[in-house]
Amino acid sequence: MNSAWNNSASGSRASFLAVITAPAAWITLFFVIPLSVIWAYSFGRTLGLTEVAVTGTLSNYVRVFDPVYLLIFAKSLVFAGLTTAVCLVIGFPYALAMTFASDRGKILLLLGIMLPFWTNLLVRTYALMAVMRTEGYINDAFGLVGLGPFEMLHTNFAVIVGLVYVHLPFIILPLYSTLDRMDRSLIEASLDLGAGHIATIFKVIIPIAKPGILSAIMLTFIPALGSYLTPDLLGGPDSQMIASVIERQFKRANDWPFGAALSFMLMYLTLLAMGLRAIQDRRAARTRSQGDA
């Protein structure tokens, strides 16, 4: 084993320990242990206000399958799915424009999506609230043509708009990195052979970029699924997502074991999505290496 550590045996072990001790200790103490506690609590029941006895019961997980909570899980999946779909439709042409822009144009378009991305999430959500309020600009615009006002804030529509607003960079960046790596001669060939631009996009660009597009979809879907702030501030009473229910169990209902079980269901869904993405990436890598051979 020792030879595997590195080429020079002398001092290698000491420097290895010097490098690894702090991060390993930190991640164990402040991440692995807290998550393990939550995991253990999900098999427990409440005794007092914040006291939990870990009894090994599965009743919390059974409760997750109660229609009320199943519906919230389903709704969260639909919200996240819709958000991802809208982001893809809005973001794909943007990523395409970025790919074929000049160097300066690329930087400008990149900054264009990164500046809002760096802006505090709360600030962005607050900005959207002002725009969508019943007395906000959108309704002012509708008023000019004699329509409205529409109730937009605190609806499911507002939640989707908010989620799209927040997650647009999540899809544009990976889409851009996929499209940018693409072999341009294939697109030129398609155009030379008489295909139109739209046909080229659907029949050449999208099929070639498919693995990257799927990966981008996952990278948008995963954070959208666990959103807390957007549905909380922009949504109404019927737009709760999983995270809001988890928050309620821990902060108000004081049912930590049930909240813990919900958290881990959300975690399993996230890890499942990650796993699918990893499998997809591996398959893409294999086809690529076969293509090269």
């Binding site: 390993a24 995270a243 988890i246 821990f250």
Partner: peptide, 28 residues
């Protein structure tokens, strides 16, 4: 294992980490 443990905080939903911290610093 180490690689997985240090990658997990990037992918774990914020809410899960939030409640883990709440319990850890509230009780443990």
């Amino acid at each position: 294992l180490f690689d997985g443990a240090v990658t997990l905080p990037i992918v774990v939903p914020e809410i899960c980490m939030g409640v883990a911290m709440l319990v850890f610093f509230g009780q443990i």
